[in-house]
Amino acid sequence: MARVLVGVKRVIDYAVKIRVKPDKKGVITDGVKHSMNPFDEIAVEEAVRMKEKKLVSEIIAVSCGPTQSQEVLRTALAMGVDKGIHVEVSGPDYETLQPIHVSKILAKIAQQEHIDLIIVGKQAIDDDSNQTAQMTAAVLDWPQATFASKVEKGDKELTVTREIDGGLETIKCKIPAVISADLRLNEPRYATLPNIMKAKKKPITKITPQDLGVDISPRIKIISVDDPPVRQAGVILPDVDTLVTKLKEGGHIP
């Protein structure tokens, strides 16, 4: 049976309002609620469902980031993942950590752990890169099935339905492979209390990129992070005539 690796990133929770740091070199993360990247949750859910269908023997979750990344690993363990690997990257190193680095880390772990299938979220909601799955496949020279909205796993191959512009595409690819999860792939479960308790006893191994021989020296320099432009307040007009005049003034209608 297959062994699955899932990537889980710790990101600022989607319900939290993002604030830019005063020096414009990033966003404020201190004291801000984080949670698992929602697309990664979908990836975890898919792996757990495969395990429940006895298509998978073991699921390993990997998270790269500071110590707190272990919280999202715990969540993954509570959802049904078997063990966690925390690749510690913190401080300035983490600020410039990019998909190129993460994909090399994932590829290395996949080889060490004899992984057959890697599932990651299609993108993280903080940097929106949408590159990790593709790059990991390239590093390993494995096939990739990105933007998956349905995955059927056979013995040696996968049938994956992909969300593409204007419709769906169904492809087959050989295992081992890399899948990236799209929004409609599944609806992730809540970790239930008994499983949250069990998860506390599941192992999390801590390693560093150096242990894996992956160079994480920065490839980019952050020049500036800016807030999106503020939407101008609307005005209430007394009648249609004024509206028409305003629209004409603004050049919106001839």
């Binding site: 949670s35 209390l193 949250i196």
Partner: peptide, 8 residues
């Protein structure tokens, strides 16, 4: 049951 501290 379930328990969470994630705002979403």
């Amino acid at each position: 049951g379930t328990v969470t501290n994630e705002p979403g």
